[in-house]
Nucleic acid binder design. Structure first.
Lengths: 234, 234
DNA sequence: CTCCCGCTAACTGTCAACAATCTCCATCGC
DNA sequence: GCGATGGAGATTGTTGACAGTTAGCGGGAG
């Protein structure tokens, strides 16, 4: 609250809404707000030292992002993502990632490909140090880089939203230590296909990369209750 | 304003936000609000007989939908979609429509396919009467039906948003009379491929259907200023 | 005549308060 | 004992008002 309090002294150059939005996203990411829990507007507002208006607007934004949902006269709730929905998102991500790879293989500049190769190298290093904490952000940046290298603005816009929605499901870190090495080999193969401009190969590899992620996701569920509460398969 | 005024008499069973949102979407669809114009919160609020709060929240939602954009201390503006962005959206729609067709060919129930066949027949009728006004909504419903028949919840959710964003570009009706017949033949071929469960064929046909739409879109631009104002190709 | 400056009006971003609704708990009746 | 009922507290949806910012306009200097 203190940090926001002195921040509001600054002349109006930035709105509160993005800050609140980032805070809610952080709370969800950290696990403070877990799926199904209600977002208490007044509490959050006074915590941040502001009024309920910006908080409500930030919640509205997050509804369309898919992180929250709204129930009339009951407020905003952290969305619960069912297994079916998570799998749907994996399928969609596979298709989009494949599309991005095909586009990037045709049109991406060398700078993009070099940047992605650098990220692969960085992940190699993280694997060598067995440093999951370093691997994960690089992995996210790699995927985002490919989506942007494709040059389709909407792809680059959509991808992080799908990532965020998937995060809602994460009961625990999805990155298994053993999987890091396999995953990064897939990255390397994709970059190589991009460099040699093999369009279809890059597309297939990219699709299979996400499909492999989906398979790992399914494995991580295995014994767990696959029938989530509210497993509306519709 | 009168309609909203007596609506607020009803006990709080529905929020104003969806109503305002629908109204803004209508204003954009009708062309009352054209790309680049500002949404005057106070004016719209008093027009609807409500306060500015719900209006702002509705605008926030529409920002994430892609219909509006926000500039600090200047308000909400109807987004301007550049040619490049419109083409990007066509490409994305082609991929997604193809994905949906593949999924639907595998798993869609007979009921869905029959419904789509019915829509194709309806469009045939509209073509016979040369009734563009009847054709267009059926066309929209056909596409939406395929997206939902795919059974991937996110596809069904994403599609209308892309449609709406594309609508922002429509300086005039994109449906050319001559194109209706071709377009519906493509529909019919897709349904036939679905019925015979030819996965890859359905996918290819669906992709090409949207690609054809993109081509028609490009044709409709032809002489027009292809270099839109703010044609940031990034 | 052109350009810069200050002023006014309009509008946005935020706040605090009110009415309606929901939730929870204790009480009452069966 | 157990379920229905009522009320108190908490929370949402909405409102009207205030402070700060932006845009447009007219006047004056060069």
């Amino acid at each position: 609250m203190a940090e926001a309090a002195h921040a509001e002294r600054v002349p109006r150059t930035t709105s509160f809404v993005p800050l609140v939005r980032a805070e809610i996203e952080r709370l969800i990411g950290v696990g403070e707000l877990v799926g199904g829990s209600r977002v208490n507007e007044s509490a959050l507002a006074s915590l941040l030292g502001i009024s309920r208006g910006p908080v409500r607007e930030a919640c509205r934004e997050l509804v369309n992002t898919g992180l929250l949902q709204n129930e009339m006269n009951r407020g905003f709730f952290v969305r619960e993502v069912t297994v079916k929905q998570a799998l749907d998102i994996y399928d969609l991500r596979a298709t989009l990632f494949g599309m991005a790879a095909r586009l990037a293989a045709s049109g991406a500049g060398k700078a993009w490909i070099d940047a992605m190769a650098g990220l692969v190298a960085g992940m190699d290093g993280a694997i060598g140090r067995n440093d999951v904490g370093a691997y994960y952000p690089l992995n996210v940046r790699f995927h985002q880089a490919l989506m942007e290298a494709a040059g389709n603005y909407k792809l680059g816009q959509l991808w992080p939203l799908l990532e965020a929605e998937l995060h809602l499901f994460r009961r625990r870190a999805l990155v298994l230590e053993g999987a890091m090495r396999n995953s990064n080999e897939e990255h390397r193969a994709i970059v190589e296909a991009l460099r040699t401009a093999r369009r279809d190969l890059a597309g297939r590899l990219a699709e299979r990369h996400i499909a492999a992620g989906k398979a790992r996701f399914l494995l991580s569920l295995d014994g767990r209750a696959v029938g989530d509460r509210r497993s509306d398969n519709c």
